Amino acid sequence: MNQLTIRELTMMEDELRAEQITGKTLNWCASQCQDTSTRELLEQMAEQHQLRIAELSQYFNRTNHVQ
């Protein structure tokens, strides 16, 4: 695997933060929603962002390829 630069790692950290904020926002919106189908859709969208967070975190945990 190629080594990542500091800039690339910083960009990945920014993406991780964006995914976290988006997931939290979607969960908050779902909690405010009274329509069941809309709430479920928002919860599903939040879950997909949580899965992306897990994927990125796994990548960071197994990557020691920094230049």
Rank of each mutant, 00 (worst) to 15 (best):
Thr63Val: 14
His49Asn: 10
Leu41Ala: 10
Glu19Asp: 05
Arg17Phe: 04
Asn64Ser: 15
Cys33Trp: 01
Leu42Thr: 00
Leu51Ser: 11
Ala18Leu: 14
Tyr59Lys: 13
Ile21Tyr: 08
Ser31Arg: 14
Glu47His: 07
Gln50Glu: 14
Ile21Asn: 13
Thr38Phe: 08
Thr22Ile: 06
Ser57Arg: 10
Glu47Asp: 12
Glu15Trp: 05
Asp14Trp: 07
Asp14Val: 08
Ala30His: 01
Leu4Phe: 11
Thr22Ala: 10
Leu41Met: 12
Leu26Glu: 00
Asn2Gln: 13
Tyr59Thr: 13
Met1Gln: 14
Arg7Gly: 06
Val66Phe: 09
Gln34Cys: 03
Glu43Pro: 02
Ser31Gln: 14
Leu41Thr: 05
Thr63Ser: 15
Gln58Asp: 12
Glu47Lys: 13
Leu51Lys: 11
Ser57Met: 13
Val66Asn: 07
Glu8Pro: 01
Ala30Ser: 10
Gln50Ile: 09
Glu55Ser: 08
Arg52Leu: 07
Cys33Phe: 01
Arg62Leu: 05
Trp28Met: 04
Asp14Ile: 09
Thr63Tyr: 04
Ser31Thr: 10
Met12His: 02
Met45Gln: 13
Thr63Asp: 15
Gln44Ile: 08
Arg17Met: 05
Asn2Thr: 15
Thr25His: 11
Ser57Leu: 12
Glu47Arg: 08
Glu13Asp: 11
Thr38Ala: 06
Ile53Met: 01
Leu51Thr: 08
Glu19Gly: 00
Glu19Lys: 02
Arg62Gly: 01
Gln58Thr: 06
Ile21His: 09
Ala18Lys: 09
Thr22His: 04
Thr5Gln: 05
Ile21Leu: 15
Leu26Ile: 05
Gln44Met: 07
Gln50Ala: 10
Glu47Thr: 08
Ala54Pro: 00
Ala46Val: 03
Gln44Phe: 09
His65Asn: 15
Arg7Ser: 10
Glu8Val: 00
Lys24Met: 13
Thr22Met: 10
Gln50His: 11
Ile21Phe: 11
Thr38Arg: 05
Ala54Trp: 01
Leu26Asp: 00
Ser37Asn: 10
Arg17Val: 02
Leu4Ile: 05
Thr25Glu: 14
Cys29Gly: 03
Asp35Met: 04
Met45Thr: 07
Ala46Asp: 03
Glu47Trp: 04
Leu42Val: 06
Thr63Trp: 03
